[in-house]
Simulated scan of single mutants.
Amino acid sequence: MSKISPCLWFDGEAEEAASFYVSLLPNSKIETIQKNMADSPAGKAGTVLVVEFTLAGQRFMALNGGTRFEYTHAVSFKIDCEDQAEVDRLWEALCANGGQAERCGWLRDRYGVFWQIVPTALPKYLGGPDREGAKRALQAMLGMVKLDIEGLRRAYEGG
């Protein structure tokens, strides 16, 4: 187990968000839910304070801290996807219900958390031995919202 785990700050949606996230990826589960022992700025006694969960083997903590703070692009979570079907499934789920698609495989989910949905093939095209192909793949990626593996391959191969 890692000594470091990200803490995500929420205003009352910690359990809902954690449950949503663990539903998306294998090797994910809610570990513990801690309730407020007394009324506090984080909520009334008996409401959820902290949810500890594992997401694809990585430990996280979701905290209902009270006042909402906005997330920024400065911290995001990258999910490596084996194929286009996984890219599509995660993209659709994380963009649903108020999420926002952005450029180059980035999105902001309904809770405001930033994610990068990245095919594992991307480094092969951006860092491949064909430098001109890599430049074409980079230009293709910069024009994409959700990343398209076939489009990246075609750009790399010059097709």
Rank of each mutant, 00 (worst) to 15 (best):
I30R: 06
G99C: 05
V113K: 07
E70T: 15
P26Y: 12
C7N: 15
I149N: 05
D130P: 00
T72G: 15
F53H: 05
L107Y: 02
I4K: 13
K135A: 08
V118I: 10
S2H: 11
P129W: 03
S76D: 14
S19W: 08
K78W: 13
A38G: 06
F20H: 09
C95K: 00
Y71L: 14
F69T: 12
P119C: 03
T72R: 15
L107F: 02
S2C: 11
T54I: 07
E15V: 13
G158T: 07
V51Y: 00
M1E: 13
A101Q: 11
A121M: 01
A101E: 15
V48G: 00
F69N: 10
A74T: 02
M61F: 01
P119H: 05
Q139H: 09
N64H: 11
A62H: 07
L90F: 04
Q100T: 04
D148Q: 08
G112N: 06
Q116C: 11
W106C: 12
G128M: 01
C81R: 10
T67Q: 15
P119K: 07
R103I: 09
G158E: 07
G159R: 13
K78S: 14
L147S: 03
I30F: 05
V51W: 00
A134E: 00
L147F: 00
I149L: 04
R108L: 01
E132F: 04
D88F: 03
Y111H: 06
I117A: 06
R110I: 01
E52A: 08
N64G: 12
F20Q: 03
G112H: 06
T120Q: 09
A38C: 09
Q139G: 06
S2Q: 15
L142R: 09
M1A: 15
L8W: 10
N64D: 13
L142W: 10
R154E: 08
F20N: 04
A62Q: 08
V22R: 09
Y111K: 05
R110Q: 03
A38M: 11
Q34T: 10
D83N: 06
N97L: 01
I79C: 13
A62L: 09
S23H: 01
P26L: 11
V22F: 10
G66Y: 01
R153K: 13
A17R: 14
W106Q: 12
A137I: 01
E92P: 01
V145I: 05
M61R: 04
R68M: 10
Y125L: 09
F53E: 02
I33G: 07
P123T: 12
P41H: 02
R154V: 00
V145G: 03
L142C: 07
A42S: 08
R108T: 04
E86N: 09
K146E: 14
S76T: 14
V75G: 11
L25T: 14
G128C: 04
G159Y: 11
K78H: 13
F77H: 08
T72N: 15
F114I: 14
V75R: 13
K146D: 11
I117Q: 09
G43I: 04
K29G: 13
E86Y: 05
A96M: 03
V75F: 15
Q34K: 08
G12D: 08
K146G: 12
D148K: 02
T72C: 15
L94K: 01
G151P: 11
V87L: 08
T120M: 09
A121E: 03
V22Q: 13
T54Q: 06
W9Y: 15
L55W: 07
L25Y: 14
A155V: 00
D80G: 00
K29E: 14
